[in-house]
């Protein structure tokens, strides 16, 4: 059984979690100035528009930072796991996990690629893996 601690969705974040359930990493695009933004929020900080739609992120990016949490141990993770901060091609950044990788091989700046995984408790999250540079 593979499970994760789930989010508390709010009216501002519901689209993001609904997107993951459908296998998509969605980010907001302002209808006023067309700028993309993440994490989710109701207002565009550039033009103050409250109108937005979403685009699906490519999932391609590079590693900006990463750590290996050791203590405390959580029931949701077994052994060593990598928490990663990823710069997406779209110019946004997100926190995720880097999986299927030897932690000793992880380097800042490495190309990574993400896709959605559905855990057994119904929680859907993006998870990233190393990718070959295009």
């Amino acid at each position: 059984m593979s499970y994760r601690l789930g989010p508390t969705t709010t009216p501002d974040t519901k689209f993001f979690w609904d997107g993951l359930k459908q296998g998509k990493i969605l980010v907001q695009r302002c209808k006023g100035c067309a700028r993309l933004r993440h994490p989710p929020r109701p207002m565009c900080p550039h033009c103050n528009s409250l109108l937005w739609d979403t685009i699906e992120a490519s999932g391609r990016g590079t590693l900006h930072s990463f750590v290996l949490p050791r203590h405390p141990q959580w029931p949701w993770f077994e052994g060593t796991y990598v928490v990663a901060l990823v710069d997406l091609e779209e110019g946004l950044r997100l926190v995720t996990n880097l999986v299927d990788v030897d932690p000793a091989e992880v380097t800042i700046g490495m190309p990574v690629e993400g896709r959605v995984e559905h855990f057994d408790d119904g929680v859907s999250l993006h998870q990233f893996r190393p990718r070959s540079p295009r």
């Binding site: 601690l5 789930g6 989010p7 508390t8 974040t13 949701w76 996990n97 929680v123």
Partner: peptide, 16 residues
């Protein structure tokens, strides 16, 4: 069993 909203974007990945 559930994260507080301020941890939504980091907690599920193990930043708790």
């Amino acid at each position: 069993t559930m994260l507080p909203p301020f941890l939504d974007m980091v907690g599920p990945y193990g930043l708790l």
